[in-house]
Write a protein that binds this DNA or RNA. Structure first.
Lengths: 156, 156
DNA sequence: AAATGATATGTAAAATTATTCAATTTATTT
DNA sequence: AAATAAATTGAATAATTTTACATATCATTT
């Protein structure tokens, strides 16, 4: 039907916020939201979204969205750093963004981010290869990504 | 048998160098190397190694090792550090965990945490005696504690 | 609008993967 | 060393996931 786009969106949100261990579980979660599809469709959806099924330490499994990697922008604001592949990935949790970099690069890149002087970003905290980015309230993930000039691939 | 350790090593090497799309494929690759096991054992091995099955863009699947490969350490050095009392406490605020360590230990322990390659943890940022742990959305506090192999007396 | 081609989806079956149970080996304790 | 516990594995089965096929829906062209 025409709900596919919407359904895929809901699925990614669900997988981001919930531990889902099987397609049947996901099916039930969707059913609660009035989205009725068969498990076969979910198999196709997950394949499309490149969702991986991975074992957890507690002995169960979890479907995980692909990491938002693939940074590189031809000439972005952090141009020379990102174009050298120093930024490895950026992911979100709640209103926070966590950027992974090559070892040693974090504080340099964090400096760049800070010095963009974007109102959207309250501040950053850098370790060795990880930067915690604290966005202002109400700033969306997309805004952050745009700001970072990051073209990402999160499924399709 | 006693080949398990060795077999796990071979499996990680195979998965690193080859695109393996099913356990049966892996079974054949191992057989070529005189390692004869059943699919059931491989299922267990892959679970142990936290190998995820993920869809590729070409429509097929691939078994992928967890990020930052440490793979062969069943318990790892992390346990070692905590068992020596370097970790003093862990507390939560919102979806964040703050771990206190003995002075100077933070970055070492953060490194261990990162290199567990757990999908549950987005990243860590370490100071001198404090580590900020950013869990993936939807990950519970209990999961984090379990992951850390820590049994703290809850509150009280 | 009719025709054509591409998408989307359910059903059923095939394929794959996970687990139960029993047996065996290996390690630990007495 | 004997006894006991823990770990490893295979066979068979259960559970889960993928896919072939048929239909239906949607989009585009004529």
């Amino acid at each position: 039907m025409k709900n596919k786009r919407n359904r895929l969106q809901i699925i990614t949100e669900l997988l981001r916020s919930t531990v889902v261990g099987s397609q049947e579980e996901l099916l039930n979660l969707l059913a609660e939201r009035k989205l009725n599809v068969t498990q076969a469709t979910l198999s196709r959806d997950l394949k499309l979204l490149k969702v991986a099924k991975t074992p957890l330490t507690n002995g169960t499994y979890k479907y995980v969205l692909p990491p938002i990697t693939k940074t590189i922008s031809p000439q972005g604001t952090f141009n020379h750093l990102t174009s050298h592949g120093a930024v490895l990935s950026i992911e979100f949790s709640g209103n926070l963004a966590v950027m992974k970099t090559k070892p040693g690069y974090a504080s340099a890149i964090a400096w760049d981010i800070d010095n963009k002087g974007s109102v959207e970003i309250l501040g950053t905290i850098a370790g060795d290869d990880t930067i915690l980015i604290i966005p202002r309230e109400g700033v969306t993930r997309e805004q952050i990504l745009t700001l970072m000039d990051i073209t990402f691939s999160e499924g399709k």
